[in-house]
Amino acid sequence: MKSLAELQAIKERMRDKVVIREGVNETRIVIGMATCGIAAGARPVLNAFVEGVNENKLYDKVTVTQTGCIGLCQYEPIVEVYEPGKEKVTYVKMTAEKAKEVIEKHLKGGNVVKEYTIAYTKQ
């Protein structure tokens, strides 16, 4: 059974990291989690990013968070990637599978997955 003692161990391990983390330039992955996003399947997309960031040990430089409805409901689930010093990338009609690809190619490889971006979809 999971116990609070395990949580205590996580705290001990994380304590040093927390200090280092502050002030570091971070990449932010922002997922639309309003009614439209959730209904279109944003929850598994968010979970895929959280798990992917974890598995690839990217947690020191990538944070996963949410936003509300940005008015492009027909393109949900929408994921925005903010990298320091770069232009924002907006991915649309995302799935958990596509999320894994974005982690692999974009976050790890540094190459935007063009076919999932809003610019590409609108053409």
């Binding site: 999971k2 609070l4 395990e6 949580l7 205590q8 996580i10 705290k11 391990r13 994380m14 304590r15 927390v18 959280v50 960031v53 974890n54 947690y59």
Partner: peptide, 23 residues
């Protein structure tokens, strides 16, 4: 309760989230 143990470690720390899921 978790916060009492974690003190300054945020709840959205990836290992904490994973722990919550398993818990």
């Amino acid at each position: 309760e978790l916060r009492g143990v974690l003190e300054d470690v945020p709840l959205n720390n990836s290992e904490v989230i994973e722990w919550i899921g398993k818990y």
